[in-house]
């Protein structure tokens, strides 16, 4: 009987749905370990100076605190780096959704001339020089040889382990929906403030902040593209670039709000540096355009018109989405 990699058991929170795992890339301990190493591997960049983690820093909820990331050639990117949170449940990747799978997604930044600017042929060649990598790839895939598709599978496996579901919000969510809280969670719930609960009410209220049309459920997002009223004329056409459909102009992927405290700046172009600016946008800054999301029900009035107290409550709730155990998880750090 030949060598078999060890199946990896994902730690999925009880209030989350099962994670869909592609049948051609089952989770294995060895695959995750390899993916983690590759995530921090600078050989994947043209001058061996950058890794995935360069623009997806653990301290920033695996996003980039800079508005635009700068690639190895000093060229600034065009969009803000997305936070890497609960990606295993996403249906598409990048702000414009141009990748349909994680395996497809992770291949792209390596060769992108304004990002890591490394050919996969060269990257594979460099990795193949390493005995450590040759062994790790063998252990992950039970066969000799390294190629970019195996690298992509391993990276995708690692990214699927990056699950955030242990914030104060999760305790609020479970309590509200009648799910049992353990002793630790009960202790957390005891610290929930009236302002945070008032903010949650506003978050869900259709006549309040009306956030939950697009940020819903335990994952705090829905899988869709939206024009959320940032501009009347679009310097970046977003989803239209992929579909060619003018009806998709200015639409971008709806991101999760988990760890929003850490993942700024916000929006596809990182135009808002703070949560307060984001709240102000949805309150009074909505700009009409032909493709504006009809779910922004008060768009014609400029937004939901929150008063200062309501803004404070909403922010208090948004801060409950911070999951310290996620950003500090040693399993996600550089090996």
């Amino acid at each position: 009987m030949g060598y078999e990699p060890t199946p990896y058991q994902l730690k999925i929170p009880s209030h989350f749905p099962d994670m869909p795992i592609p049948s051609d890339n089952p989770m294995t301990v060895e695959g995750v370990e390899l993916g983690r190493k590759l995530f921090y591997e600078t050989l994947l960049s043209g001058d061996n100076s950058m890794s995935c983690a360069s623009c997806h820093s653990p301290q920033a909820a695996f996003s980039d605190p800079e508005q635009f990331s700068v690639g190895i050639d000093g060229i600034q990117g065009l969009r803000n780096s997305m936070a890497l949170i609960n990606l295993g449940w996403d249906s598409f990747y990048f702000w414009d959704g141009r990748a349909k799978t994680l395996e497809e997604q992770v291949l792209i930044p390596v060769e992108d001339p304004i990002e890591m600017h490394q050919s996969w042929t060269r990257a594979v060649s460099l990795l193949s020089e390493s005995v450590t990598y040759r062994n790790m790839f063998f252990r992950a895939f039970a066969e000799p040889g390294i190629d970019k598709y195996k690298a992509a599978k391993a990276l995708a496996q690692f990214l699927r382990t990056m699950i955030s579901g242990n914030s104060k919000f999760d305790v609020i969510y479970k309590n509200e929906n009648g799910l049992a809280l353990n002793a630790e969670e009960q202790a957390v719930y005891a610290t929930v403030t009236p302002e945070e609960l008032a903010g949650y009410d506003l978050f869900k209220s259709l006549n309040g902040a009306d956030c939950f049309h697009c940020h819903n459920g335990p994952l705090m997002q829905v899988q869709k593209f939206s024009n959320n009223g940032l501009d009347a004329i679009f310097a970046d056409i977003g989803r239209e670039e992929v579909t060619g459909n003018p009806g998709d102009r200015g639409k971008f992927k709806v991101p999760t709000l988990r760890n929003i405290e850490l993942s700024g700046p916000f929006m596809h172009d990182g135009r808002f540096g703070t949560i307060d600016e984001v709240i102000d946008h949805y309150s009074t800054g909505i700009v009409m355009s032909p493709t504006i999301d009809p779910l922004i029900e008060y768009a014609s009035q400029g937004g939901v018109q929150l008063d200062p107290t309501e803004k404070q409550w909403l922010k208090a709730f948004l801060l409950t989405l911070t999951d310290e155990s996620f950003v500090n998880n040693p399993d996600f750090r550089k090996p």
Partner: peptide
Amino acid sequence: DDPSAFPNSSWLNILKANDMHWDW
């Protein structure tokens, strides 16, 4: 029912329901 508890194949699962689920 818990929308996360339906099997992934069900259109009632929160991943498939997507924005068609308000709250419990």
